[in-house]
Amino acid sequence: MNSPDAIVEVEHLRKAFGELVAVDDVSFRVRQGECFGILGPNGAGKTSTIRMIYGFSPATSGIMKVFGLDFLDNMRAIKARIGVCQQENNLDPDLTVLQNLEVFARYFNIPRPVALERAAALLKFMALDHRRNARAIDLSGGMMRRMVIARALINQPDLLILDEPTTGLDPQSRHQVWERLEELRSKGLSILLTTHYMDEASRLCDRLIIMDHGRILVQGTPADLVKEHAGHEIIEVVEPEDRLRDYVKLRRLRHEDLGHRLIIYINEGDGLFREISDTYCNEGCIMRRATLEDVFLKLTGRELRE
């Protein structure tokens, strides 16, 4: 399993907590310079997977290589080259923004002048310059998140790992985070992220896996996955009539019947839509492009995960 451009190689990774198997036979590769996404509903095993990759929790079994190095034998060297942005905003609340970066740089044995130089550049990059002397606890949610990302970059990592980077942020903050991450990726930084936001994954990820119940369901580029599992377009019919159901079955269209809503996956143009909307639609009937969310819901089901 040695591919020259793989930053992360994971094979048959497994993590069990007693009886509960959180990650089951997971294999994937993250290539140099790409943004790789791990998607899945709550409890799918996303966080458990990346926690093993940044050395937070030991794998039950499986092979892991990061930067081509065997993980267990080179944990310290590997951790020195990755930046991690965990789910919680675990900044030091009593310290200022700048001090947070200085203290964190010391964990990597970065000399102080270098740390200060990098901190200044990172605060500028993350638009936190004006709050450099604010206490971390006084930052807004969006600023804290940007700050955690800035902190993860203090060691100039070769791989950035983000666990749900925009969960809980307002739309403005999310877009700001996305822009920054896109900029980092365009500079060649490899990124591994988990998310349950499909718009985030479509926008940022070059390739992704969708996980559920600890296993990988599918793997590919967002566009390919949409094409393969949801078609090009989707017709949604609210309160469908039974004769539409019959029609869909007769034409053998890929569809999902949710009772009050019928979802039809189509590859053809809008001829079919016209036919359906003219003949069968009394109330709502819309056609839209298929998205990753359609793929996700189709594969992981629609029942609540709590």
């Binding site: 060297a77 951790k79 020195a80 964990y107 044995n109 902190r151």
Partner: peptide, 14 residues
Amino acid sequence: YQKTFDAMMATPLS
């Protein structure tokens, strides 16, 4: 509460 150790464990610290 502060998850300070969690943040440290993602660095070269053991």
